[in-house]
Design a protein around this nucleic acid. Structure first.
Lengths: 283, 283
DNA sequence: TTTGCATGTGAACATCTTGTGATCGGGGGC
DNA sequence: GCCCCCGATCACAAGATGTTCACATGCAAA
């Protein structure tokens, strides 16, 4: 495969990290069941995490939800809607706010946008269009917010720092290469078995050639460096015939902080739609 | 519209926004005289710098215009409009692109937004509304750049003075050129690895061409001047396969005021992809 | 237990990245 | 109008990294 060139690969990889629009977190404040249902269907297909709110939620509540986007039907709030909209926009400048409501006057739309809304869609609208508008609004924010959103992770004795593209044990760098780091991060972000093809595709950015052993080789290098920096622990586990799973486990099960046991439904690795967002919350 | 000079370029690119907020630089690609006239009147009232383009302009031309926003009537371009739109959005990720055109189908609007447009307004529209939409789109871009506090920074032995567009060591100028300074400032403002593409995009103002080495060359010049003015220190660190990171580090770790050794960012974001939406918030 | 794969391992090899010096051309300042 | 400074590119070299092989080892089904 000579098609790979570093820059391409890296940009593709980074794209993989930020592009998957699937990672939308949004809440919809609306009461129209039909509208919600159709929207929910599309959002599910995109793998977005969404939540519908039948009633207004406090601004503080919104803050803790850490959303990317917030869709609101001003009709629900009546005259108090303007104040609410203003508060939300002022308090969460990084949140994409989309007003999606019934027929309105130019003056109303202007007012909404001036108060800080990112877009104003008139119902009835095609769900696909609404989603595009949401994505467009989120897109820019995401570019800048992404790096901040990438949070530091502590697993076992290892600290994974996306901001530095490096992993540490006791503040000592494991000296991972860029690609090693990406694979470690990918694995650590998923509490399930990842098939080689999936790992390859998400890190390299394109499909894995049949028989390619690159992933195996990188896993070996990772294990080597992890073992060197954090002996007594095992982090990457092989699932024969399937793939790899990340989980910090202390070799000596007696020691404290032994491990993070994992349910391990190895059979349910129907890859596509990843770990579903707690369904109890939707709808 | 004046041509570019160092300072101006920087303000447009890094968003130093010396222009009072609200000052728009926009171009409108449209042929409807009535539309243009009404719009022009409103824009004048706002004190915006605008330019109407009766015919398509090359993407490179747009780049040199250093705009905040670009309004385009796809009808003017016909079928080639999509490609043009895509190119513009790809090349100028920081530009607010608003499509303002006649009646369209949902599919067309979806396509436009997916290609990177920030908003789609259907003509005929109220000029005030269009302006609000433009402002909403621009607001997002600016917001990101506004927080860049123009404060003097002391890092290691170096003093960075945005007000003078220059860096000093013991009050002696490092004689940085405008672009060198911008890159140094950008790097010093971020405690993380910045990818070349990101640096290029934020300093030059548009997407980096594939294989462009400009960033590397400027980093070399910067290192040279930093080394000359502050020997014994290293400031710009290469992360192979990723990009550059700024951090003042004393070569001799024994010396006092040694360095800022990649400290744990106290802001340690609540980590984990966990707790999706907190159910306790509803109602 | 044996056989057929799948995976672990180490090293050679090919490629890609980055550092660096030099050159070219344009634009702005004088 | 002329000259100099600055920024864009190129070419080359040295390393770092990624890929590919061949072989060893281990798991699973017959």
């Amino acid at each position: 495969m000579s098609t790979t060139n570093g820059a391409e690969a890296s940009s593709a990889a980074s794209g993989t990290v930020q592009h998957p629009p699937g990672r939308l977190r949004l809440a919809v404040l609306d009461r129209d069941p039909g509208f919600m249902q159709v929207l929910a269907k599309r959002l599910d297909a995109l793998g977005s995490e969404y939540r519908s709110l039948p009633a207004p939620i406090s601004v503080d509540g919104l803050v803790t939800m850490r959303l990317n986007a917030f869709v609101i039907d001003l009709a629900i709030l009546g005259p108090t809607g303007w104040g609410y909209l203003e508060q939300v926009c002022a308090r969460l400048p990084g949140l994409a706010v989309i007003v999606c409501t019934g027929p309105s006057s130019v003056a109303q739309r202007v007012r909404g946008l001036r108060l800080g809304a990112d877009a104003w869609i008139t119902k009835p609208c095609h769900p696909e269009e609404l989603i595009c508008v949401i994505e467009a609004a989120v897109r820019r924010h995401r570019r800048v917010e992404m790096p901040a959103i990438e949070s530091i992770q502590n697993v076992g004795e290892v600290t994974i720092r996306p901001d530095l593209y490096q992993a540490y044990v006791n503040d000592i760098s494991l000296e991972l290469t860029a690609r090693e780091f990406e694979i470690l991060k990918l694995l650590s972000e998923n509490d399930r078995v990842l098939r080689r093809e999936e790992i390859y595709e998400r890190v390299w950015g394109y499909a894995m050639a049949h028989g390619d052993r690159s992933v195996d080789v990188f896993v070996r290098k990772l294990r080597q460096k992890l073992r060197a920096g954090s002996p007594g622990w095992s982090y990457i586990h092989t699932h024969f015939g399937v793939g790899y799973r990340f989980s910090a486990e202390c070799d000596d099960a007696n020691l404290p902080g032994a491990a993070e046991p994992v349910p391990m439904p190895a059979d349910q690795l129907a890859d596509g739609p990843l770990d579903p967002f707690d369904p109890a919350l939707a709808g």
